[in-house]
């Protein structure tokens, strides 16, 4: 049997090769065939999950409830010091300096990254803004969100903090953050599907010991991760409860 591994479609483009390397490394460690499949949208990935095609996933926290509570996935690991934080950003020439100055009718650029979209909307709430009184402009990437701000076609953009910092210096200089979330506990995690569950302890050990040798460290570095940290099932359940308080 060949298992299938996938990564939340909001991964940083700079780390695509890193995830491929990780999959190759994991196959070697487990002496198991694992196919790495990337999806270009969350909808496509969710469809694959529903069809039972995913056995290991680096999951967006927004999808954790569905994976754990509906599909029987279990907690495996999370990256150390890598919380998902969102930023609300404007053009550096904008006269807006605080969230409360934003008015109904603004145009917001965003990607389909679900947890960033959720956190971004929460950060607009103090200005009484919601999807009923703003225009939402979907973009295929954070670079295109930046472009909408630079061209002046959107007033505000939602960014994953890490992706904002991945933008070129020249682009960042033309943008300004209004607010960055400091939530700390919403983050991506590695979850294991039921078909792969019998290898859980073994995979967990392999992940946690990656920092013990140079090759493992190199693989982690290529994914932009310092180290994996053990994730208890209750940790994921807690994050799911937390997300359920935030999702409208």
């Amino acid at each position: 049997m060949t298992y299938q591994f996938t990564v939340s479609p909001d991964f940083s483009p700079a780390h695509i090769a890193g995830w491929h390397i990780f999959n190759t490394w994991l196959q070697k460690q487990l002496s198991e065939a694992i196919h790495f499949e990337m999806y270009d949208s969350f909808d496509a990935q969710r469809q694959a999950i529903n069809e039972g095609k995913v056995d290991l996933i680096y999951a967006n926290p927004y999808d954790a409830a569905m994976l754990v509570r509906d599909k029987g996935f279990t907690a495996l690991a999370k990256p150390i010091d890598k919380p998902d934080e969102a930023m609300v950003v404007v053009n550096s020439d904008s006269k807006i300096t605080t969230i409360e100055e934003l008015q109904a009718g603004i145009n917001v650029a965003y990607t389909d990254d679900p947890d960033v979209q959720m956190m971004g909307m929460i950060m607009l709430e103090p200005a009484d803004l919601n999807t009923s009184n703003i225009t939402m402009t979907p973009c295929d990437s954070y670079i295109l969100v930046a472009k909408q701000l630079l061209q002046g076609t959107c007033d505000v953009g939602f960014f994953l903090e890490e992706s904002f910092h991945d933008l070129s210096k020249m682009v960042k200089q033309q943008l300004r953050s209004l607010v960055t979330s400091q939530i700390y506990i919403i983050q991506h995690s590695l979850l294991l599907g039921p078909a792969f569950a019998e290898r859980q302890d073994e995979i967990s050990q392999i992940l946690l010991s990656m920092t013990n040798d140079e090759k493992g460290k190199g693989v982690l570095e290529s994914m932009g991760i310092k180290a994996w940290e053990h994730l208890e099932q209750e940790d994921v359940e807690f994050m799911i409860d937390l997300m359920s308080t935030l999702v409208e």
Partner: peptide, 12 residues
């Protein structure tokens, strides 16, 4: 129970 509090609008 889990409770999460966020910034309210001044109008509310």
């Amino acid at each position: 129970y889990t409770s999460v509090r966020r910034k309210p609008s001044r109008k509310k």
